[in-house]
Design a protein around this nucleic acid. Sequence first.
DNA 1: GCAATGACGCTCT
DNA 2: CAGAGCGCCATTG
Length: 119
Amino acid sequence: MQMVKSQHIAAIVRRIPRGRVATYGQVASLAGLPGHARLVGYTLHALPDGSPVPWHRVINARGEVSPRSERGAELLQRALLEGEGVVFDGRGRVAFEHFGWRPRRAAGQRRPAPTPKSR
DNA sequence: GCAATGACGCTCT
DNA sequence: CAGAGCGCCATTG
């Protein structure tokens, strides 16, 4: 299978619970490609139309949606997330501390320090 | 089979 | 904290 990659990534994204958002890097790490977030982004773009993949739940590490090629698409993604209960801050950013998806991994918690300083 | 593109991440300034 | 540059692999033409 050649597009197994997309299938694998799709499986990861599909694991994201509703009302939660994950970053490309996070999905990439879970997919077995740590540090290769670009692959996730491009692979998601190559996903078929009938893919049950909530791609709108996948955003960049900045906590904001990517300005994709199509103008307004980021607004659509943001609308979908808001429809799931995700809230954006005044700058259009999502608080990973509240909406960041935290997958259950025995020895692989990709969450070193969620800004422990200042509250 | 080769070349170019692409929905990012991380580090440095 | 914000902005800019480099690197990575997969998919498409």
